[in-house]
Write a protein that binds this DNA or RNA. Structure first.
Lengths: 349, 349
DNA sequence: TTTTAGCACTTGTTCTCTACGAGTGCTAAT
DNA sequence: ATTAGCACTCGTAGAGAACAAGTGCTAAAA
């Protein structure tokens, strides 16, 4: 069922006002505000219908109206006007890029910080672990009892561990280890390691097989451990400033969401992966009074992570959405661009 | 001024009771409890004196007594009995060690988690950044446009970066880079880099000097960036369960302490460095209702970090202290032991 | 048919007042 | 030195009144 033009105007005004003040909005308030040139009684009738249609609700009989989830949905889907980032805000956001951080992780962290400061809500970033398949191994002699074990993954990322051993090592032996690893373990992920490959690895080590167990344990650890999402969270306390969370129990529920970062990351990524654009979630995850805006970060077609904002359900969506979109657009430029460069280079030979 | 035996008993009983219930404790309550065989009137007199002496105070005229910071101090310094960790608790703590994590960082993280669960307070661990002096550099060829730059520090720690460049690189050239770095930059920390060493580095690169700027920038970044404390925090929401923090403003103050991790780490380390044992802090850092127990982690005479617990001022100190001490004792065994091994090995040649 | 003015009704908030309970300090007796 | 007794203080909980905000409905006006 379509909303009349006037209903849309009223719904928009109600939500705008509620977002600003946090107070239920009554019919009289709207006569003064908005460009509606009708009496409060008319507005009352319209609001009553909007309530029947599921866009508004009353906290109690004699209070004004408050938007429902459905109300917010239509608001962000079309009613709200676009927010133009101020010069000040653009400056803050651009600083994130000016610093020229090459790692996406730090870039998203500082963006998350900037956005939290700008919007005064909690902001977070999640980076999904990528390609856990080993492509190549290298070893590097450090001293008689330690060496660096380096794993180059299929996605180009690199992991390494400083391995300390009781026995003596020397560069020659380490070379053997690397060769044996490359011969038997390249291309594996942690589930792929078979008994056969382990045995072959030990065999290839020959006289140095004493070191096999240690090396295998480290590799197993490397394949698994870095395999976790990187989570950054900024401005948790900001949430506590909003009356929605002035009750400690609710505050607790909200903050608890960020407590177990692993779990949080999984929740976020499971919502981001199938989406290719920004999504808005109202009152989910046992947080009836919270809203979450989620922006997946996609580079070269792959969802590498997500950045988002959590605030009270009545948060300033247009500002939040504008900030997140500005960020993701520029990340796109920066990283897709870089990739094109790489491809150019690769064409040469 | 020394406290009489009876005053001590009373002070201890008051604090024990207050820690248990969180309610101000009155004279009548104590007659039933403790082994004091005196009337409430006598206790009243004693409590009145304890108040005059600064160990107790009254929230308001008709309420019971509550310990002052001074009261807590004498309590933890000698009045409280020792807490014996239950088998259950020992099991939880031991699991941390059984997992045989070699990195102190993860070890402290899981200990922090375990202790937070055990005590139901917030627990944190901080690891101080160590030795930022470069001892040796290595390079490792990855592909035509990228290589791994490895920095081995004087304290044995290792840092590395995956460097991507536009120009073509090859193993031979990388060897030159490593040699040039070792000749000019070994032993430096970020403040030590002089113009002279930079020029010499470029000179030694010879035909490959085009790569100098990139390499130098990466090294500068490595010297500085990893130079930050690693902070882990566990169980923040647990704080919110205590009436001390049921007011959102207070909760906010408490949680804000953990918000800026860098700042938090600095605060913690500055309190831990000069201490060689466990310290207890009452109501500091603008948190009048909080208490912090801090245990520096010292390995081979060096303070490498700290682990601690934050809870309401009336937290169960004996349990918290017992847990932290159990942990630090075992960390000592594990790591000092490992070090002895290393030294044995080194004696051989 | 749509809009509006008017009014009775509902409900939450704020304030005051009262009663109560917990705990103290003091006095006088033991 | 200890204790029983008692008057006093202060915070909390509850009841009731006054009030404000906002609604739905009715009937009149456009």
């Amino acid at each position: 069922m379509e909303l009349s033009e006037r209903k849309k105007k009223i719904l928009k005004s109600v939500i705008d006002s509620y977002i600003r003040t946090g107070e239920p909005v009554g019919s009289k308030l709207l006569t003064g505000t908005s460009d509606l040139q009708v009496s409060s009684a008319t507005i009352r009738n319209e609001m009553s219908e909007l309530e029947r249609m599921g866009y508004l609700e009353q906290p109690h009989a004699s209070a004004g109206r408050v938007p429902t989830a459905e109300g917010y949905r239509t608001y962000v889907d079309g009613l709200m006007e676009q927010y133009l980032l101020s010069l000040e805000e653009l400056k803050v956001l651009n600083e994130v890029f000016n610093y020229k951080v090459s790692e996406i992780e730090r870039l998203m962290e500082s963006a998350s910080h900037a956005i939290s400061e700008m919007t005064n809500y909690t902001s977070f970033s999640v980076i999904r672990p990528s390609g856990r398949n080993a492509k190549r191994f290298e070893t590097l002699y450090i001293d008689e009892h330690s060496f660096l074990l380096i794993m180059i993954c299929t996605d180009g990322s690199i992991r390494n561990r400083h391995v300390k051993v009781r026995m003596s090592v020397d560069p020659e032996m380490l070379k053997t280890v690397a060769e044996a690893l490359n011969a038997t373990m390249s291309g594996v992920c942690s589930e792929d390691v078979t008994l056969q490959s382990v045995l072959e690895f030990e065999e290839r080590l020959g006289a140095h097989s004493g070191i096999a167990a240690t090396v295998l344990r480290v590799i197993y650890d490397m394949l698994n451990s870095t395999n976790s999402e990187k989570v950054h969270i900024d401005g948790v306390t900001k949430l506590l400033s909003y009356p929605e969370f002035s009750d400690v129990e609710k505050a607790k529920d909200a903050i608890a969401l960020f407590e177990d970062r692993r779990d949080f990351a999984q929740k976020i990524m499971s919502r981001s992966t199938d989406e290719k654009g920004l999504t808005v979630h109202f009152g989910e995850a046992d947080l009836p009074d919270a809203g979450i805006v989620l922006q997946p970060i996609i580079i070269n077609g792959k969802t590498v992570g997500a950045i988002g904002v959590m605030g009270p359900k009545r948060m300033d969506y247009k500002k939040v959405i504008a900030s997140l979109q500005y960020f993701v657009d520029n990340v796109g430029k920066q990283f897709e661009g870089e990739d094109r460069n790489e491809q150019e280079h690769r064409k040469k030979p």
